[in-house]
Protein backbone atom coordinates (compact mmCIF):
# COMPACT_ATOMS: atom_id res chain seq x y z
CA UNK A 1 0.00 0.00 0.00
CA UNK A 2 0.97 3.66 -0.21
CA UNK A 3 2.48 4.73 3.09
CA UNK A 4 2.14 8.26 4.37
CA UNK A 5 2.93 10.16 7.51
CA UNK A 6 1.21 13.17 8.99
CA UNK A 7 3.09 16.38 8.28
CA UNK A 8 4.36 18.35 11.26
CA UNK A 9 1.54 20.23 12.96
CA UNK A 10 3.55 23.45 12.72
CA UNK A 11 3.49 23.15 8.90
CA UNK A 12 -0.22 22.43 8.75
CA UNK A 13 -0.97 25.24 11.19
CA UNK A 14 1.09 27.59 9.03
CA UNK A 15 -0.87 26.58 5.93
CA UNK A 16 -4.23 27.28 7.56
CA UNK A 17 -3.13 30.38 9.44
CA UNK A 18 -5.39 32.72 7.48
CA UNK A 19 -8.58 30.67 7.76
CA UNK A 20 -11.33 30.48 10.32
CA UNK A 21 -13.26 27.53 8.93
CA UNK A 22 -11.57 24.53 7.40
CA UNK A 23 -12.17 20.87 6.76
CA UNK A 24 -9.88 17.95 7.54
CA UNK A 25 -10.62 15.36 4.89
CA UNK A 26 -9.53 11.76 5.35
CA UNK A 27 -9.42 8.83 2.97
CA UNK A 28 -10.40 5.22 3.75
CA UNK A 29 -7.88 3.81 1.27
CA UNK A 30 -4.19 3.14 1.90
CA UNK A 31 -3.71 6.02 4.34
CA UNK A 32 -6.40 4.62 6.61
CA UNK A 33 -4.75 1.21 6.58
CA UNK A 34 -1.37 2.72 7.42
CA UNK A 35 -2.94 4.82 10.20
CA UNK A 36 -2.05 8.17 8.67
CA UNK A 37 -5.29 9.49 7.21
CA UNK A 38 -8.39 7.48 8.12
CA UNK A 39 -11.32 8.49 10.33
CA UNK A 40 -9.35 8.24 13.54
CA UNK A 41 -6.46 10.37 12.26
CA UNK A 42 -8.93 12.94 10.95
CA UNK A 43 -10.39 13.26 14.44
CA UNK A 44 -6.96 13.56 16.04
CA UNK A 45 -5.70 16.16 13.58
CA UNK A 46 -8.90 18.18 13.80
CA UNK A 47 -8.67 18.26 17.59
CA UNK A 48 -4.95 19.08 17.49
CA UNK A 49 -5.53 21.98 15.09
CA UNK A 50 -8.34 23.34 17.27
CA UNK A 51 -6.11 23.10 20.33
CA UNK A 52 -3.14 24.65 18.53
CA UNK A 53 -5.18 27.57 17.29
CA UNK A 54 -6.88 28.15 20.64
CA UNK A 55 -3.47 28.25 22.24
CA UNK A 56 -2.61 31.07 19.84
CA UNK A 57 -5.86 32.85 20.73
CA UNK A 58 -7.20 32.43 17.20
CA UNK A 59 -9.76 29.63 17.26
CA UNK A 60 -10.58 27.78 14.07
CA UNK A 61 -13.66 25.81 13.19
CA UNK A 62 -12.70 22.40 11.85
CA UNK A 63 -15.17 20.17 10.03
CA UNK A 64 -14.32 16.48 9.77
CA UNK A 65 -15.05 14.20 6.85
CA UNK A 66 -13.61 10.99 5.41
CA UNK A 67 -14.22 9.78 1.88
CA UNK A 68 -14.04 6.17 0.72
CA UNK A 69 -11.20 7.19 -1.58
CA UNK A 70 -9.76 10.44 -2.83
CA UNK A 71 -8.16 8.98 -5.96
CA UNK A 72 -11.43 8.51 -7.89
CA UNK A 73 -13.40 11.49 -9.19
CA UNK A 74 -16.78 10.03 -8.20
CA UNK A 75 -15.85 9.80 -4.54
CA UNK A 76 -14.81 13.44 -4.56
CA UNK A 77 -18.19 14.67 -5.75
CA UNK A 78 -19.44 15.71 -2.28
CA UNK A 79 -16.77 18.43 -2.49
CA UNK A 80 -19.15 20.33 -4.76
CA UNK A 81 -21.28 21.08 -1.68
CA UNK A 82 -18.44 21.31 0.78
CA UNK A 83 -16.45 23.89 -1.13
CA UNK A 84 -18.73 26.77 -0.16
CA UNK A 85 -18.83 25.77 3.48
CA UNK A 86 -15.11 26.01 4.23
CA UNK A 87 -12.22 28.27 3.29
CA UNK A 88 -9.72 25.45 2.89
CA UNK A 89 -9.36 21.68 2.97
CA UNK A 90 -6.51 19.79 4.62
CA UNK A 91 -6.44 16.41 2.90
CA UNK A 92 -5.01 13.40 4.68
CA UNK A 93 -4.99 11.38 1.46
CA UNK A 94 -1.72 10.58 -0.27
CA UNK A 95 -0.46 13.07 -2.83
CA UNK A 96 -2.69 11.45 -5.45
CA UNK A 97 -5.82 12.56 -3.61
CA UNK A 98 -4.54 16.08 -3.03
CA UNK A 99 -3.58 16.44 -6.70
CA UNK A 100 -6.90 15.10 -7.93
CA UNK A 101 -8.80 17.58 -5.74
CA UNK A 102 -6.57 20.38 -7.04
CA UNK A 103 -7.22 19.24 -10.65
CA UNK A 104 -10.97 18.84 -10.35
CA UNK A 105 -11.82 21.60 -7.89
CA UNK A 106 -9.50 24.49 -8.69
CA UNK A 107 -11.55 26.80 -6.45
CA UNK A 108 -10.72 24.76 -3.38
CA UNK A 109 -7.58 25.64 -1.47
CA UNK A 110 -6.34 22.18 -0.67
CA UNK A 111 -3.30 21.51 1.52
CA UNK A 112 -1.50 18.22 2.14
CA UNK A 113 -1.90 16.90 5.66
CA UNK A 114 0.51 14.02 5.10
CA UNK A 115 3.84 13.39 3.43
CA UNK A 116 3.49 10.49 1.02
CA UNK A 117 6.52 8.38 1.70
CA UNK A 118 6.71 4.96 0.02
CA UNK A 119 5.05 1.72 -1.08
CA UNK A 120 5.38 -0.62 1.82
CA UNK A 121 4.15 -3.54 3.85
CA UNK A 122 2.76 -3.52 7.37
CA UNK A 123 5.11 -5.86 9.23
CA UNK A 124 3.56 -5.44 12.65
CA UNK A 125 1.28 -3.00 14.41
CA UNK A 126 2.82 0.43 13.93
CA UNK A 127 5.65 -0.71 11.63
CA UNK A 128 5.78 -0.21 7.85
CA UNK A 129 8.69 -1.01 5.55
CA UNK A 130 9.36 -0.12 1.94
CA UNK A 131 9.22 -3.04 -0.50
CA UNK A 132 8.76 -1.50 -3.95
CA UNK A 133 9.70 1.73 -5.66
CA UNK A 134 7.23 1.55 -8.51
CA UNK A 135 9.99 1.69 -11.12
CA UNK A 136 7.60 0.40 -13.78
CA UNK A 137 9.94 -2.29 -15.15
CA UNK A 138 9.96 -5.12 -12.65
CA UNK A 139 13.14 -7.18 -12.29
CA UNK A 140 12.32 -9.25 -9.24
CA UNK A 141 11.72 -12.33 -11.40
CA UNK A 142 15.54 -12.36 -11.59
CA UNK A 143 16.23 -11.66 -7.93
CA UNK A 144 14.17 -14.26 -6.08
CA UNK A 145 11.31 -11.82 -5.54
CA UNK A 146 13.43 -9.35 -3.56
CA UNK A 147 13.71 -5.83 -4.96
CA UNK A 148 17.18 -4.30 -5.00
CA UNK A 149 15.86 -1.00 -6.37
CA UNK A 150 13.74 -0.37 -3.31
CA UNK A 151 15.64 -2.36 -0.72
CA UNK A 152 19.32 -1.66 -1.48
CA UNK A 153 20.53 1.70 -0.19
CA UNK A 154 22.44 2.22 -3.45
CA UNK A 155 19.70 0.77 -5.68
CA UNK A 156 22.32 -1.54 -7.13
CA UNK A 157 21.50 -3.84 -10.02
CA UNK A 158 24.65 -5.89 -9.45
CA UNK A 159 25.30 -6.19 -5.75
CA UNK A 160 26.37 -6.75 -3.11
CA UNK A 161 28.44 -3.62 -3.19
CA UNK A 162 31.29 -5.11 -1.17
CA UNK A 163 30.50 -3.13 1.93
CA UNK A 164 27.95 -5.48 3.43
CA UNK A 165 28.96 -7.04 6.71
CA UNK A 166 27.50 -10.19 8.22
CA UNK A 167 24.46 -9.75 6.01
CA UNK A 168 23.80 -6.14 7.05
CA UNK A 169 23.89 -3.08 4.81
CA UNK A 170 26.92 -0.83 5.11
CA UNK A 171 24.81 2.30 4.68
CA UNK A 172 22.20 1.44 7.28
CA UNK A 173 23.23 -1.34 9.63
CA UNK A 174 19.69 -1.88 10.88
CA UNK A 175 18.65 -3.08 7.45
CA UNK A 176 19.63 -6.41 5.91
CA UNK A 177 21.76 -6.26 2.76
CA UNK A 178 19.16 -7.29 0.24
CA UNK A 179 21.82 -8.40 -2.24
CA UNK A 180 23.24 -10.72 0.41
CA UNK A 181 19.75 -12.21 0.77
CA UNK A 182 19.30 -12.48 -2.99
CA UNK A 183 22.60 -14.36 -3.34
CA UNK A 184 21.82 -16.65 -0.41
CA UNK A 185 18.37 -17.45 -1.69
CA UNK A 186 19.47 -18.15 -5.25
CA UNK A 187 22.36 -20.29 -3.95
CA UNK A 188 19.92 -22.38 -1.90
CA UNK A 189 17.77 -22.85 -4.98
CA UNK A 190 20.77 -23.78 -7.09
CA UNK A 191 20.03 -20.81 -9.35
CA UNK A 192 22.96 -18.54 -8.56
CA UNK A 193 24.22 -18.70 -12.12
CA UNK A 194 21.20 -16.62 -13.08
CA UNK A 195 23.13 -13.64 -11.78
CA UNK A 196 25.85 -14.32 -14.34
CA UNK A 197 23.43 -13.52 -17.13
CA UNK A 198 24.07 -10.14 -18.67
CA UNK A 199 20.91 -8.10 -18.27
CA UNK A 200 20.07 -5.49 -20.81
CA UNK A 201 20.35 -1.99 -19.42
CA UNK A 202 17.36 -1.20 -17.27
CA UNK A 203 14.86 1.08 -18.91
CA UNK A 204 14.31 3.94 -16.44
CA UNK A 205 11.69 5.70 -18.54
CA UNK A 206 8.83 3.81 -16.87
CA UNK A 207 10.26 4.95 -13.52
CA UNK A 208 9.21 8.48 -14.36
CA UNK A 209 12.17 9.65 -16.41
CA UNK A 210 9.90 10.04 -19.41
CA UNK A 211 7.39 12.45 -17.93
CA UNK A 212 3.96 11.76 -16.49
CA UNK A 213 3.18 8.06 -16.26
CA UNK A 214 -0.17 6.86 -17.48
CA UNK A 215 -1.90 3.54 -17.98
CA UNK A 216 -4.69 2.69 -20.40
CA UNK A 217 -6.67 -0.52 -20.62
CA UNK A 218 -8.35 -0.54 -23.98
CA UNK A 219 -11.19 -2.87 -23.02
CA UNK A 220 -12.27 -0.59 -20.19
CA UNK A 221 -12.01 2.73 -21.95
CA UNK A 222 -15.19 4.56 -22.95
CA UNK A 223 -15.11 4.68 -26.71
Amino acid sequence: MIIAERRPLSEILKNIEAYERIMVLGCRGCVAICSAGGDREVAILAEALRLGREKKGKPVQVLEETFIRQCDPEYLEPLKDIKDKVEAVVSLACGVGVNLIADLYPDIRVYPGVDTTFYGANLSLGEWVEKCRGCGDCIIDLTAGLCPIARCAKNLLNGPCGGSQRGRCEVKAEMPCIWHEIVERLTKRGELERLLEIWTAKDWRPAGGDGLRTRFREDLLDS
Partner: peptide
Protein backbone atom coordinates in the same frame (compact mmCIF):
# COMPACT_ATOMS: atom_id res chain seq x y z
CA UNK B 1 -10.05 6.53 25.69
CA UNK B 2 -8.87 8.06 22.41
CA UNK B 3 -6.11 10.59 21.75
CA UNK B 4 -8.89 12.97 20.75
CA UNK B 5 -10.49 12.65 24.22
CA UNK B 6 -7.20 13.66 25.81
CA UNK B 7 -6.69 16.61 23.45
CA UNK B 8 -10.30 17.69 23.92
CA UNK B 9 -9.85 17.73 27.69
CA UNK B 10 -6.99 20.22 27.22
CA UNK B 11 -9.06 22.29 24.84
Amino acid sequence: IEITDILRAFR
